[in-house]
Write a protein that binds this DNA or RNA. Structure first.
Lengths: 342, 342
DNA sequence: CTGTTAGCGCTTTCAC
DNA sequence: GTGAAAGCGCTAACAG
């Protein structure tokens, strides 16, 4: 059996109260001699408090849950890394929950995490969540009174702390870059347009077009699913348009890879025949033969920030309702070049 | 406040014992009428057992810990995905622990996980662990009496269940492939040779050489660190050897990417001037302009298997000491070709 | 300065 | 059929 506080009490002759007080740094009136005896016993018997028992009485577990769609997705694994690192630095632990973008699982995990007594949840809602579903998740967390911070994907109508990237500005930067290079027929491989992030990137795209006096053509927008397959399919769609598209802006790197491969397969050279911009700046993008111009998101830092927010919310008991916005940064590499009349 | 079992007792008029019995399916003698009343109340009051309290009395948390070096590493994130998926299927949860390959953190996390009452640990020891350190970690888990399964990296002298890949056979397959293509001067970009997996891949390499009557030249082995930088540095080393190397076997894909980029930078064409084989078969290897021939490891499945093993060990209370060995599989793509005399 | 006591929310033995 | 009571390991009023 594991050593318990009782064992220390028996061993030292003091009561469990005294032991607890000393171990929790609340022994204001207890002489050093007593403390020493206790600490010695703790060391000797190798005592460590049972955190389950502590959790039951303190109603704190120093554990948070991270609800994401899929850790094997590079974006999320970097996020998880940041989250875990910052947790460790603060003496917290992390329960990892993959929903595979199924709203139903969002709800299940929220409930389970609450049952396990996590002190807070870092929530990145499922791709298949429309506004109604997303609100359902939020309502559940509120009902269960578990503090939460929304990450990456957020909802304007929810009053909570969220850690996001300014996708509008990312979309704007990517598009502006292409426009400055002289491109005018710029296609987009968007993510699901039900998602705010996808919408915002599109908004940024439109803003840039407007600024350059280029009219918006909805035909040039292919609504994909943020995966590689979407990129491959988008190429087919875009080339089939016969619209003299000379540049493609993919709303994430995975779909950009699909576009990359799809274009190659069709005999297109990047960037000569087609410029390509991605979004996420996964480290692979740099390794590609034609290193990909991409919008970098400070994912790791977002994870760190989210943990700091949730911890401060837990400690203070107040919902900051802050919206921490990170700025994405366009990383120009070799997949984009000036438009040449042909 | 959350609804407790007492609330259900008060509401229904039955005692907490009865409620508990019914809810835990141990109500052999309790009439359906009573059960119905209780279930109705549970539903109405939205009662869910507090798992911390349950954990305290049952000494089971249905939670396991996963100790790995770094989730943001694709290999581990795929492992984590498998682990998490299988946990969910079985109603378990996962605490994620990144050690960044620091042995000290292995120990810290093992202790913390035990304090939190996890039922078992999936342990992938740190890269910086020599045998002595690794044994220290194992001894700690044994002392704390927490069941564990070793993943990927294992020790022959430890009596425990482990889930691994037959790295010898992977090394053999990769090398044989190159030998069959006619290559004779095959360099290796190894991982730390203190690690068994790296040693085993090397053993497979040697076996294949022997089979083809090619003598082993230790100069051709570059000991790297499984990262991209190692690959870049290895290229410099290998080209500097002046040994007419025509093929490189990288002991993982990350270092192979380094080799890939390094070779390009030096003006080498793959596979014309140099054949290249990786190990891990990260999805990205397929996307490269010259898709990488690589040894595929069924990482996801290993995660799944590890969870099944740990759960059965926890449930049965017996250490199976099984060593589950997965077979890697060579995936031939475009980065390897026949040796041509020049 | 230190100990007694109650209680966190639950399971389980035993008694009626 | 059901309930009282003890106990899991700990914290925290309160008492002295």
């Amino acid at each position: 059996m594991r050593t318990t506080i009782k064992d220390i009490a028996n061993y030292t002759g003091f009561s469990v109260t005294t032991i607890s007080l000393v171990l929790n740094g609340k022994a204001y009136k207890i002489p050093k001699s007593t403390k020493d005896i206790i600490f010695d016993a703790v060391e000797k018997l190798n005592y460590r408090p049972n955190q389950i028992a502590v959790g039951l009485v303190k109603k704190r577990t120093k554990t948070i849950g991270l609800v994401i769609s899929d850790v094997s997705n590079v974006f999320f694994s970097n996020l998880a890394k940041g989250v875990e690192d910052e947790c460790r630095r603060n003496g917290w632990n992390l329960i990892l929950c993959n929903t595979n973008d199924m709203h139903k699982r969002d709800l299940e995990y929220i409930q389970v995490l609450a049952d396990k007594g996590v002190d807070g949840i870092l929530f990145c809602m499922s791709l298949d969540s429309d506004k109604k579903k997303a609100l359902e998740s939020v309502k559940l967390m509120e009902k269960l009174k578990v503090p939460f911070v929304m990450i990456d994907r957020f909802l304007e109508e929810v009053e909570c702390c969220s850690v996001i990237v300014n996708h509008r500005s990312g979309g704007y930067a990517a598009t502006k870059h292409l426009l400055e290079l002289g491109h005018r027929n710029i296609a987009c491989v968007a993510g699901p347009l039900a998602l705010e992030d996808s919408q915002h990137r599109l908004k940024g795209y439109k803003e840039a077009l407007e600024e350059f006096g280029v009219s918006y053509d909805p035909d040039l927008i292919y609504e994909g699913n943020y995966d590689r397959k979407s990129g491959v399919e988008a190429v087919e769609y875009i080339l089939g348009l016969q619209k003299k598209v000379t540049a493609i802006f993919s709303f994430n790197d995975m779909s950009a890879y699909g576009v990359y491969n799809g274009l190659k397969r069709c005999g297109y050279l990047i960037p000569k025949d087609m410029s390509l911009v991605g979004y996420d700046d996964i480290f692979f993008s740099e390794i590609l033969d034609v290193p990909l111009t991409s919008v970098n998101q400070p994912v790791y830092d977002m994870g760190v920030e989210a943990v700091q927010q949730i911890i401060s919310e837990i400690d203070s008991g107040v919902n900051s309702k802050k919206c921490i916005t990170f700025q994405p940064k366009l990383i120009v590499r070799d997949s984009t070049t000036e438009y040449e009349e042909k």
